[in-house]
């Protein structure tokens, strides 16, 4: 579905307060008067003005679009944006913490042909990005001045992918068949009956989260619980929330327990004794070796027989742990 110009474009009336029925004056098509940019052609009378709008949005003399995008990419990578109100660069929005940096990146981004790939590479290769999170700085608790990395919670998609990757079940390749054909064969019937056919339970799958369909009202449970951006509204910043329902999911959800079982088998088929298996578990899940204290504590938990049941419980605690969820 795409928008097209109508045969005879016309000017619209103002919808006062956004109401469909409350109409004001007719306003001719044109650019915002508050922001003037030179050398942008006025909309042609024969066209809607969408072409000119696109030209204006991406005009070399209009820094706003590039700033907004650069700010969002920065936020995604650092967890904190340069302008902390990414949806609002206006009067009521926040001032940028690093205005020169924002403009430096925005200008270069335009010069590089609006390449998001270039932008991400530029940022992740910077010294600021590659810092450790282990330092603390009381003078700057929010880390506005970027003297370290700010720890943060991994998002829903990454959490799901991480669980699958660690359990060894992740299928890293794109799915062969479109997901909706697979999970939603009755979608035409759904439209006529107003009843959903696809359920959350239908979304069990081992592909990466990015390949999952986003259907309003039927998201994978882990997405809904771990602050996935709801598809019915624009979300520039996801909330970082910790809820008991998330903990219940990690403690009791059959899918999580199933993945813990896969992880247990993956770990126990590898090593020969508890310490070597625990080392493998910690390397897989936390990218580090366990300490002696951790090995002793886990060995105590496993007990004499160290049954598969016990290993599953242990692996579940690893998947459920704060260390698995906090990126630092």
């Amino acid at each position: 579905m795409g928008a097209r110009d109508r045969d005879k474009p016309e000017d619209s009336r103002i919808h006062i307060r956004g109401e469909t029925t409350n109409l004001g004056e007719t306003v001719p098509r044109g650019f915002l008067r508050a922001i003037s940019i030179k050398d942008v052609p006025a909309p042609s009378a024969k066209q809607s003005g969408r072409l000119e709008l696109a030209q204006w949005l991406t005009h070399r003399n209009n820094p706003l679009t590039a700033r907004v995008l650069v700010n969002r990419v920065w936020q995604k990578l650092f967890g904190r944006a340069l302008v902390t109100t990414p949806d609002d660069f206006g009067i009521t929005g926040a001032r940028p913490s690093h205005p020169e940096l924002l403009d430096f990146l925005a200008v270069r981004f335009m010069e590089k042909g609006w390449s998001v790939k270039w932008l991400i590479k530029e940022i992740v290769l910077s010294r600021a990005y590659r810092q450790s999170s282990s330092r603390t700085h009381d003078a700057d608790p929010d880390n506005v001045w970027l003297s370290r990395m700010t720890p943060r919670l991994i998002e829903a998609e990454a959490l799901r992918d991480a669980v699958l990757a660690v359990s060894g079940q992740l299928d890293p390749y794109p799915p062969q068949k479109p997901f909706l054909d697979r999970y939603h064969p009755q979608r035409d019937a759904e439209l006529s009956t107003f009843k959903p056919f696809m359920t959350t339970a239908d979304l069990v799958d081992d592909h990466r989260s990015i390949y999952l369909p986003v259907v309003r009202g039927t998201l994978p449970e882990i997405f809904m619980l771990f602050n996935f951006a709801p598809p019915e509204r624009p979300v520039a910043q996801r909330e970082e929330v910790i809820l008991p329902a998330q903990s219940l999911h990690m403690m009791n959800n059959p899918w999580i327990i199933e993945q813990a079982g896969h992880l247990a088998r993956r770990v126990t088929t590898g090593g020969t004794d508890a310490p070597s298996r625990l080392t493998r578990l910690y390397e897989l899940a936390f990218a580090r070796k366990p300490t002696e204290i951790e090995i002793n504590r886990a060995s105590d938990f496993l007990g004499q027989d160290a049954s598969e049941e016990r290993w599953t419980s242990l692996c579940q605690t690893v998947l459920a742990s704060a260390e698995f969820r906090v990126l630092r």
Binding site: S133, S134, T136, P151, R152, L153, E240, I242, L243, P244, Q246, S247, M251, E294, R297, A298, F301, L314, T317, V318, A320, S321, A322, E323, R325, V326, R328
Partner: peptide
């Protein structure tokens, strides 16, 4: 066991997120 692991991390990081996760469990 899970909370012991979480408390270790809290001791290392003093991160309020970790404290939140401990309480949440």
């Amino acid at each position: 066991l899970l909370q012991a692991m979480n408390r270790d991390l809290l001791a290392q990081t003093a991160d309020p997120r970790v404290e939140g996760i401990i309480e949440s469990y």
